[in-house]
Design a binder for these strands. Sequence first.
DNA 1: TAGTGGTCTAGACCACGGT
DNA 2: CCGTGGTCTAGACCACTAG
Lengths: 239, 239
Amino acid sequence: MDIKSLDKNDVVPLYVQLHRIIKEHILKGEYKEGDLLPSETAMMNTFDTTRGTVRKAISELVKEGLVYQNQGKGTFVCIRQVKYSMWNFGGFTDYLKSRNETAISKVLEHKNVTVDGKEYFKLVRARGVKKDGEVLYLTIDTSLLPLNLFPDIGRFNFATESLYNIMRDVYNIFPKHSEIMLTPIKIDDTTRDILQVDSKNSTLLKAEGKVLNEDYIEIEKVSVVYGNNIEFKIMTTII
Amino acid sequence: MDIKSLDKNDVVPLYVQLHRIIKEHILKGEYKEGDLLPSETAMMNTFDTTRGTVRKAISELVKEGLVYQNQGKGTFVCIRQVKYSMWNFGGFTDYLKSRNETAISKVLEHKNVTVDGKEYFKLVRARGVKKDGEVLYLTIDTSLLPLNLFPDIGRFNFATESLYNIMRDVYNIFPKHSEIMLTPIKIDDTTRDILQVDSKNSTLLKAEGKVLNEDYIEIEKVSVVYGNNIEFKIMTTII
DNA sequence: TAGTGGTCTAGACCACGGT
DNA sequence: CCGTGGTCTAGACCACTAG
């Protein structure tokens, strides 16, 4: 399959090395859509490693959506887009941690505003990940934080600090519940630019609602626009 | 960790059994947000299996975003569980009853199909309400019901009988959880006609996923398209 | 230092698909 | 039948974290 071989002394795990090699072949077009890859046993011999390592490398390709496997038949190339999964509201940083990726936050707007006679700190952020040196923004979050609960919250740098951590650590306020409404929205040009949505796909998912503390006091009004690189998943228990 | 043990003679792979057991513990709230799970070695001993199997089970949880792992520290729970879901999954009829409205169901399609080598009964329904003599359809539901769990389920009249009631009363199978993915979709003409969507609004919300019983066995694949007359709300508890 | 997850080996048996 | 991927075992050594 390849002239390259694995370096067992390299700090890079063997399965990562192998994953890269196979991926390169696919992306170079040496294996095309629908093609059958060499069998796991074949790769095991070619690269002088064990099946476990080969399977680990291939499983990464499956996760990325580059190949699929069929028992009794083999491993086939199938190029499709992989998306991020949002299991819910919040939990962003932890989820990315599980993917070994770094959370990125860019402040688009921050100022005090008055809504319905009440003062809020308005914070608009583009949030995403940094992977392989590239930044990919996944959501645009707008938060309205009541200034009576969070006096002088504007002094923090939200590009580097987690909003919910500040809530908990500085103001001793703990987000506990949320009530959200979901709607599809039409995208505007600014959003399209930030979230890197291609032009033929013009609708996104928007979540709007509020976050409450344990006493069901509203502590934040939120609005999140989800880009196309993210999947919005929910788990429920049917009562 | 658990009284349950793995059945090595079961056709269900050990790692799937283990995955279900751990997941159940997490979703039941016995392990909460941020909690440390038992170590891989501990589970290996508890369930009398090897670390490979334990790691495979955990890796599924990581993929789902339910836990993340940290070298040198352990495996931690990271979820935000939805406590009450949007009205529909498991509560359509009851919800409408509370509003003094009558649930309406119109069967659009019903036949046996084979998906991935498994036999299902496919049921497509337009669902809505009857109020003041007028019928308003709110959603289009597509259900795939495994025929091994629901033999001969096609004999029922789903225009008049509730699917979930049949599940419970006839088959003694109780829908308990759901895992859903939400996406905005472009509407087609048939859908537009049924859901009475006006022409300028061409995008709707689609929920796709599965419904599970109390043992986290999949009992239904579902797909619901929500019309514009419905608000899609969710309430969550941030654990 | 002890315990954790991360990686890797060298086997094994199985279910499935095509010949 | 043979080759494929799917699962599982019973070890091993490593890097990282924390006390």
